[in-house]
Amino acid sequence: MPGMLKIIFGNLFKKRATRLYPFEKRAPFENARGSMDFAHMENCIFCNLCAKNCPPKAITVDRANKRNALDPLRCIQCGVCAEACPKKVIEMRGQYNEPCYAKRTHVAAQVVKCAQTPPEQK
């Protein structure tokens, strides 16, 4: 009991340990895996390796339309896709997924910088 007394009185004057989460966010740790992101789509060669290696099959690669899609609710944030991608297109953002109201697929289209081919319409 005396040890507990010391702790609770210490806590009274200590900074609280909890955070008001959605308003106060802690900076993610270095190399934390969080939600995945097609960060450098311009490098993608549509090799389908990410989709093939993804354990829950959350990625679809659309080679014809030059766009990749992610089902964020299927993704388990394992980071396998980021390791498998030969062009380092995929990055793990270190932040947890935002809560959502509806199931939506994240589509990342490749915007072609070169002037010969017109940019894709989404």
Binding site: I7, I8, N11, A17, F29, N31, A32, I76
Partner: peptide, 28 residues
């Protein structure tokens, strides 16, 4: 209060796990 205190300590262990593996619950 004991429950809260122990879980506060546990949080540090989970942080250590996250620093190593990248996630606090599913280490992969």
């Amino acid at each position: 209060s004991y429950f809260m205190q122990t879980w506060n300590y546990r949080e540090k262990v989970l942080d250590a796990i996250e620093k190593i593996s990248g996630h606090r619950v599913t280490y992969a």
